[in-house]
Amino acid sequence: MGDDSSEAAEAGLLRRSRDGDTVAFGELITLHREKIYMQIYMIVRNEEDAMDLSQETFLRAWKSLPKFDGKFSLLTWLRRIATNAAIDLCRTRQRRPQVEIDGGPIHADAASRTTPTAFERPGDGIDRADLKARLEAAFDMLSPEHRAAISLKEFDGLSYQEIAKATDSSLGTVMSRLHYARKKLQSLLADLRNDR
C-alpha cells in the first residue's frame, strides 16, 4: 500500500469484508497473497506447505475480521497470522521427524539431510546449484523465528518496528534474532566468502 487512494480502497474492501462480502475479501487476498506466500515460504522452506499456510492465513483472517482493530495495517496483521502459522508448523515438524535405524531413534531435520559435514576448501570451486543448496542448507539450520526475522529484514525490507509487529515480538528480540541469525549464517558459510 503506497498512496492514500490505495489505502482508502483497502479500507473500503476491509469494511465490506467485515460485512460478510466475500468478493471484497477476495480482492484483499489478491492484494496481499504474494507477500504472505513469500514470507511463509521463507520460514517453512516448502512450496506446498507455503501454499496451504497462505490459505490458512487468509481463512483465519476472515474469521478474525471482527476482532481486527486497525492498530496495525492489514498487511502487518496478516503477516503476524502468517508468521504464527508457519512457526507452529515448523515446531510440529521438529517434533515429528524420527527415523528408526538399527532399533534406535535418530532425530532428523531437513537441514541435516542436505548440509555437508565439511565445507569445501577455498578454491575448490562451487557451481550455482551447489551454492544454492549450500545457502538453503545453512538457512534451514536457523530456527523458524530467526528465519522469519532475517527474511522480513533482508527480503521484504521491513524496519525493526515492522518486524516486531509482524512477529509479535519486542524490538530487542528482533535485533537479537537478527544478530544471532547473521552470526550463524556467517559461520556456516564462512568458506564461501574465502572462495570468492
Partner: peptide, 15 residues
C-alpha cells in the same frame, strides 16, 4: 559480502 549472495540464492520461487 554474504548478504547479496544470500538474497540472490534464497529468493523464494514465484507463486
Amino acid at each position: 559480502q554474504l548478504r547479496p549472495t544470500l538474497v540472490a540464492g534464497l529468493a523464494p520461487p514465484p507463486l
